[in-house]
Amino acid sequence: MDGVKKALWIVWKDVVCELRTKETLSSMFVFALLAIVIFNFAFQLRGDERVGLIAPGVLWVAFTFAGVLGLNRSFIKEKDHGCLEGLMLCPVDRSAIYAGKALGNLAFMLLMEAIALPMFAVFFNLPVLMPSLLLVILLGTVGFAGVGTLFSAISVNTKAREVMLPILFFPVLIPIVIAAVKSTAQIFDGVSFDQSMPWINLMLAFDVIFLVVSFLSFEYVVEG
């Protein structure tokens, strides 16, 4: 329980930082909005009026790209101001640091999605306030933030840090993208939720496996 409390303190630190600067959330949100607008042009100019076909893809591309933006900031801001060393000196487990950073990233992602989703509903004229869709978004985002936090810590150690994150992250993220887009499409098409169950289970499996793997391997990434 002590570890959970310490992790929550790290989340709190990130939230306070964000409230003071507001740089991560605002850039994530504007980027997601831009992605939705650009993709809408890119596909609709082909003359296809059936926007429902492209909507799930656009939604997840927007979330993914905006999410990477936020993940990049997550460890770069720690590194640039020497905060990472400070965090390492704290009398907490490395796994508590991982849990705290991952929860913080998850919270920022979900907030960004909560603001971007109504915009998406307006532009694509689709109903988004469905429990099944919200579940899919939650599961996809948990996996995203879980692995993403580990990869953010990896890429901050490299010479070209902002560039490395998507190159490392996207290939590993592919199962989440497939499952999320497929189940989102099924929900928009109005097929029964049972048919989305394999995808939901796949995301659950991805989330559990990679949360465990990231949790265990995080300490090797930040040590030294």
């Binding site: 692995v147 990896i154 793997v213």
Partner: peptide, 9 residues
């Protein structure tokens, strides 16, 4: 770490 995560994926 990356090699392990990649293979598990």
């Amino acid at each position: 770490v990356f090699g392990i995560v990649g293979f598990v994926d």
